[in-house]
Amino acid sequence: MHIVKLSVNGETRELPDLDPETPLLWVLRDHLGKTGTRFGCGKGLCGACTIHVDGAPARACITPASVADGKKITTIEGLEGRVADALRAAWSAGNVPQCGFCQGGQLMSAEHQLRTSPAASKQARDGAMEGNICRCGTYTRIRSAMDQASAGLGGEK
């Protein structure tokens, strides 16, 4: 059997006994102990498991390990850089989280949006967050924090 090889937050991991069809969510959580990627729906509906595969957001719960074979995976634990810093600062300043369960996924979506489309309109920015459910209802604060982070990075307030 082909051995799946993943680079997770810069660390290369080989998974010899892994069924390559196993969704990345469970590979991360159960095989690699990266529990910051959360299980919310298992169907790609809620965004709690959002990760980056080669820098692009993916719902880990419906992304088979085989798809990411040899690719770079970033999880919330490994999310770094100027944009991530600005977002975390804005999230903190705005006291965004309530229970916090979905916030890792929210940040993964937000980081990709601000990193790849720094000049996007506020509307486009908010649109990028549509796939991430927050049952506590922190949306208005998420939007404000995105605005603040975006402005700090030189984008539209």
Partner: peptide
Amino acid sequence: DIPIRSIDAILNGSAQFGM
């Protein structure tokens, strides 16, 4: 308005939920 106690752990993914 004191910051909530787990905010850093929530934002870096290390917060421990039941799962």
